[in-house]
C-alpha cells in the first residue's frame, strides 16, 4: 500500500471559533489547532478562508505566517476562491504549498496556473467544469483532459497536480460515488504520475452527525483501493488514520468482498465489521440508503 497523504480540513472559516479568530486576527486558537493537527501527523494543513473577497490577501498572508511560525515542517494547502489571496499566501509560504483548488474552467486555469510555476507549488485540479459538476466518470475524464492540456501550456508536470474528482453526498447521489471509483481506475492511464485527492467528508453530507464517520471511513477504503493518493479529512478521526495506513486489514477485506460482489455473512460479524459491511453495501447501491441503514 503506497503512502496516503492526509490534508487536515479543520482550519476552516465556517467553523465559528476559527472564523472569529480570523476576523479578529487572533492567532492563538488557529495556532493551537495547527499544533494539534501536527500531533496527529497530518501531511498538510488546509487553510480555508472561504471566498474572502475583501481583505483576502492580507488575511491569507497573516495566517500562513502565524501557522508556519508554530509548525514550520508541515506545508499548507491554501484554500480560497480569491486568486489574489492565494498568491499572497504563496509569496510568504515556506516549502511546497498546495493551491486548493483550480477548477477546470478556462478563466480559472489561466488565472491560477501561472502561480504553480512561479512559486513552485502543487495544484489541486478540481473537476468542476464550465457546466458545473460532472455527471459521470466520462465527463470527469474529459475535464481531466482539459486540465492536462492547459497544464502543458503552463509547463506544469503531472506530478504537481492532485486531481479531485469531487465527492457527492451518498444520501442523494450514490451513483456519483460509484463514478468517482470508476474515474480513479482510469486516472493513471490518462495522467501518469499525477496525484489525487478528495473532499472526503462530502460523502456524508446531510447525514446525522454521529453517523457521518462510518461513511467517510468506508468510502476512503474503497477509493484508496483504486489509487486515491490523499484526502482532505478530519485530522482527529484516528480510526480513519488506521484504515488508510492499512492497520485494519479485516475491515478492508470485508469492504473489498462487498465491492467484488462476493456473498458475505453480515450477521456473523462483529458489530464493528457489520457497520462497515452495511455501509459498503449502501455505497455500492446494493441496498437503498436511509438514515437508519445501520439498524436494519
Amino acid at each position: 500500500m503506497s503512502k496516503f497523504y492526509r490534508i487536515g480540513e479543520n482550519l476552516n472559516v465556517v467553523t465559528k471559533v476559527y472564523g472569529q479568530a480570523m476576523k479578529e486576527r487572533n492567532p492563538k486558537p488557529l495556532q493551537e489547532l495547527a499544533l494539534k493537527e501536527a500531533e496527529k501527523k497530518v501531511d498538510y494543513i488546509d487553510i480555508n478562508i472561504g471566498p474572502a473577497r475583501k481583505g483576502g490577501e492580507e488575511l491569507m498572508e497573516w495566517i500562513v505566517k502565524i501557522i508556519q511560525e508554530v509548525v514550520p515542517d508541515i506545508p499548507l494547502a491554501l484554500d480560497s476562491s480569491n486568486i489574489a489571496a492565494i498568491e499572497a499566501g504563496l509569496k510568504v509560504h515556506k516549502g511546497k504549498a498546495i493551491i486548493n483548488s483550480i477548477m477546470a474552467r478556462p478563466e480559472r486555469m489561466d488565472g491560477m496556473m501561472p502561480l504553480v510555476r512561479k512559486y513552485d507549488a502543487y495544484m489541486i485540479g478540481l473537476l468542476w467544469g464550465p457546466e458545473g459538476m460532472p455527471r459521470d466518470e466520462h465527463e470527469r475524464g474529459m475535464l481531466t483532459a482539459e486540465i492536462l492540456a492547459k497544464a502543458a501550456e503552463y509547463n506544469i508536470a503531472n506530478e504537481d497536480i492532485w486531481f479531485d474528482p469531487i465527492i457527492a453526498p451518498l444520501n442523494i447521489q450514490q451513483n456519483q460515488l460509484m463514478a468517482d471509483l470508476e474515474y480513479m481506475k482510469m486516472l493513471q492511464d490518462m495522467a501518469p504520475g499525477a496525484l489525487s485527492t478528495c473532499g472526503l467528508s462530502n460523502a456524508s453530507n446531510g447525514v446525522p452527525d454521529e453517523l457521518r464517520p462510518i461513511i467517510n471511513r468506508t468510502y476512503v477504503v474503497m477509493i484508496q483501493r483504486y489509487g486515491m493518493a490523499s484526502a482532505i479529512v478530519d485530522a482527529f478521526d484516528d480510526e480513519l488514520w488506521d484504515l488508510v495506513d492499512g492497520k485494519k486489514p479485516e475491515v478492508n477485506k470485508v469492504i473489498f468482498d462487498i465491492m467484488d460482489g462476493k456473498s458475505v455473512d453480515i450477521p456473523s460479524m462483529s458489530k464493528e465489521l457489520q457497520a462497515y459491511a452495511k455501509t459498503a453495501r449502501v455505497i455500492m447501491g446494493q441496498v437503498l440508503f436511509s438514515d437508519s441503514w445501520l439498524e436494519i
Binding site: F289, S290, E295
Partner: peptide
C-alpha cells in the same frame, strides 16, 4: 424521495 420513504417505513416499524 425514495430514501426518505424508506426511512419513514423503518421508523414506523421501530
Amino acid at each position: 424521495d425514495v430514501n426518505l420513504a424508506k426511512q419513514l417505513n423503518i421508523l414506523l416499524g421501530q
